[in-house]
Amino acid sequence: MLKFAANLSLLFTEYPLIQRFGAARAAGFDAVEVQFPYTLTPEAVRKELQDHALKMVLINLPAGNWEAGDRGLACLPGREDEFAESVDLAIEWAKTLGVERLNCLAGVPPENVPAERVSATLAHNLKLAAQRCEGAGIELMIEAINNRDVPGFYLHHSHQVLDLIRKLELPATSLQYDVYHMQMMEGNLISTLQQNADKIGHIQIADVPGRHEPGTGEINFTNLFKALESQEYKGYISLEYIPRCKTEAGLGWLKTWKTQDERNELECSG
Rank of each mutant, 00 (worst) to 15 (best):
M1G: 10
L2D: 04
K3M: 13
A6S: 08
L8F: 06
S9W: 13
L10H: 13
L17M: 14
G22K: 08
A23E: 08
A23C: 05
A24L: 06
R25Y: 02
G28C: 00
G28E: 02
T39V: 12
L40G: 09
T41R: 01
P42C: 12
P42K: 10
A44T: 13
K47V: 03
K47H: 09
L49T: 03
Q50A: 15
Q50S: 05
L54F: 06
G64A: 11
W66G: 04
W66N: 13
A68W: 01
G69R: 01
G69Y: 00
R71D: 04
L73Q: 03
A74P: 11
E80K: 10
D81K: 15
D81P: 13
F83D: 00
A94W: 07
T96N: 13
L97I: 11
G98D: 13
V99G: 04
R101W: 00
A106W: 01
P110R: 10
P114D: 06
P114R: 02
S119F: 07
T121W: 00
T121Y: 04
L122V: 01
A123P: 05
H124Y: 09
G137M: 13
I138G: 01
I138Y: 02
E139D: 09
M141P: 02
A144L: 11
N146Q: 05
N147V: 04
V150M: 10
P151K: 05
P151Y: 01
Y154N: 04
Y154K: 08
H156L: 05
I165V: 06
P171R: 04
Q176L: 03
Y177S: 00
D178H: 07
M182Q: 15
M184T: 02
M184G: 02
I190P: 12
L193W: 01
Q194D: 02
Q195I: 01
N196L: 00
N196S: 03
A197D: 04
D198K: 07
D198Y: 08
I203Q: 14
I205C: 12
D207A: 14
H212T: 13
P214K: 03
I219G: 04
N220A: 15
F221E: 04
L224Y: 03
Y233Q: 03
E240A: 03
R244E: 10
K246S: 15
T247M: 09
A249I: 05
A249Y: 14
W253C: 06
W253F: 15
T256W: 06
E265C: 12
